[in-house]
Design a binder for these strands. Structure first.
Lengths: 335, 335
DNA sequence: ATGAAAGCGCTAACAT
DNA sequence: ATGTTAGCGCTTTCAT
């Protein structure tokens, strides 16, 4: 059986295609008997509207593009889930984008937006096409940025207070009596990594503690860099008694390295992470960390995008989502 | 600046829209001077083809639908990544679907296929719309199933040999001298869970070992069920000296429970998982487990779908991807 | 309340 | 090699 068209239903019932379209789209302009006859026929003929035709006519795709830096990174999962849920609720489908930190790819996704592939885009990449300044034609597109700030883009952002949360994490270590607290940063100078390090510095400053030479290691958010940075920190003349890592994965690397060095966590050294990823609480020891409301970040970003798509001007708006600090088993009072 | 259309380019250069279309699509039927002039003008006017119009005309969307059971589950990540990579390479974009184990939603995605939202679909759900038997109209759609078998659907499958890999995992424990080997199964009667349990049974049978009463616990693939099943197993009169869990997450739950019970892994009890998820090797102890080529499963599924879309009949085809067994730190010779 | 007609932007069959 | 024409299936004026 070939796919039924609006025309087929119209012919079958002896009405015009326009009436069928109206009846099916619930425009309320169709008299009751006609309406039900049409709906019944559509059902019977197994009618489904052709999206390409509709999109062409309405000039919208009812799809959004969700672009992440690396689809393989579990960290984005819940955000994607949140976006998906909010999108489907609003009748939008979600196209998946993956830049792999490749500038060209990022441009491609902006292009897809302009092609009509999608009506709007949620960027979770922390990067922008590397052009001179920020082109105005891009800035006017319906884009919402989540998680990682993209400076001077003017796009509305949904984020957490990275610096504030980092400060809180370090404050926890301070409250446990630690004074020799080191930091394993993310890939400086990425904004998020800088902000988390800034929070660390602030907390130390507020506690009146100097940051000793070598106490700020720089990693790349991956397990192995947590290990190597940890080793460096421990080889210092005055090694730290606590480590604040800029993300959970590096914290795990650090903990594993400490175990290899025979240093018990949290008895000998405390470790704090950031992100509260999947299974962070299942690790041994369960990781003390900053929990981000990832799903909510996703839904909020999508909601914001819907408003932008509805024509609201949200330029420069920043929505801060609350984090919560989870004290678990990887931190203990200073020996 | 309004979006440029083919018509605009045609007018600007005094050629026909058809010629512009041909030049831009590289059909090779356009003379060189014209061709470059057109390409240059397209570039200059910042022309981008309108996908809805093209899709309507060509009756294809150049998109595929990738439907998983739960977007939030990290296990699907690499598969999604593989699908995405193969899709983009072939010029397809990827729409994300999420069923949350909801039969209605699954039907919705089949409908999207018929709407023209996508040209084909990759199902990673292990379920099918619950209708009487399997409707022929669905069976003819371009669908490829990955990971979890969907019986009697006729769709081509990309899978691993779950039973075989499970057998190998248990064989490893046997080779270490274990005889009291228990199993924590997935949610029976889901096919994948059944297959893995079948592999366990086979290995035991081949070793001439009976499976004691209570040695087959049934979980749900989640951490907590690993804990509770483990507790049950350990409370048996003759507790096992080794546990084979149907997935890594339950294996972690079991290991954590064992730690709580004061039983060292692997010294007192060995534990084997299945899947080799993100950070499985970062756990303590690093998990001995069955590694699935997840990214390749994704790319292979997409490739198969491309063949189906090209008109090849692949009904009933099953592609088996090789697994590899990773011996790590959670298993040791029987005490 | 319904119908007639136009047109979204593109590609492809057919003509030249 | 290029132009002419038609039409994909839908929605939306405009007319009645």
């Amino acid at each position: 059986m070939n796919r039924a068209r609006i025309k087929d239903i119209a012919q079958e019932l002896g009405v015009s295609p326009a009436t069928v379209s109206r009846a099916l789209s619930d425009s309320g302009l169709v008299a009751e008997p006609t309406r039900s006859r049409i709906r019944e026929a559509a059902q019977r003929l197994n009618y489904r509207p052709n999206v390409s035709a509709r999109n062409l006519r309405t000039q919208r795709s009812m799809a959004v593009l969700m672009v992440v830096r690396d689809v393989g990174n579990p960290f984005y999962l819940d955000i994607m889930k949140g976006v998906e849920a909010a999108a489907r609720e609003a009748g939008y489908s979600v196209l998946m984008g993956n830049t792999e930190n490749n500038a060209e790819r990022e441009v491609e996704y902006f292009d897809m937006l302009r092609d009509g592939h999608a009506d709007g885009m949620i960027l979770i990449t922390g990067k922008l096409p590397e052009r001179e300044g920020f082109p105005q034609e891009l800035a006017d597109l319906p884009v919402v940025v989540a998680l990682e700030p993209i400076e001077e883009s003017g796009f509305p952002h949904v984020m957490i207070d990275n610096a504030g949360a980092a400060r809180e994490a370090v404050a926890h270590l301070l409250s446990l009596g630690h004074t020799r607290i080191a930091h394993i940063a993310g890939p400086i100078p990425e904004p998020m990594a800088v902000l988390r390090r800034e929070g660390y510095r602030q907390a130390m400053r507020e506690a009146g503690l100097p940051i000793p030479q070598g106490y700020e290691a720089v990693g790349d958010y991956l397990l192995r860099s947590g290990e190597t940075c940890c080793r460096e920190l421990l080889s210092l003349a005055q090694p730290p008694t606590a480590i604040f890592a800029a993300n959970d994965e590096m914290a795990f690397g650090a903990i594993n390295e400490l175990r290899r060095l025979g240093l018990a966590v949290p008895e000998k050294i405390s470790v704090v992470g950031f992100d509260d990823i999947f299974l962070s609480q299942a690790f041994y020891p369960p990781l003390t960390t900053v929990s981000q409301p990832r799903t909510e970040i996703g839904t909020e970003a999508m909601r914001l995008l819907l408003k932008v798509l509805a024509g609201e001007d949200r330029t420069g708006e920043v929505v801060m989502m609350p984090t919560s600090f989870r004290v678990r088993g990887s931190t203990a009072p200073a020996g």
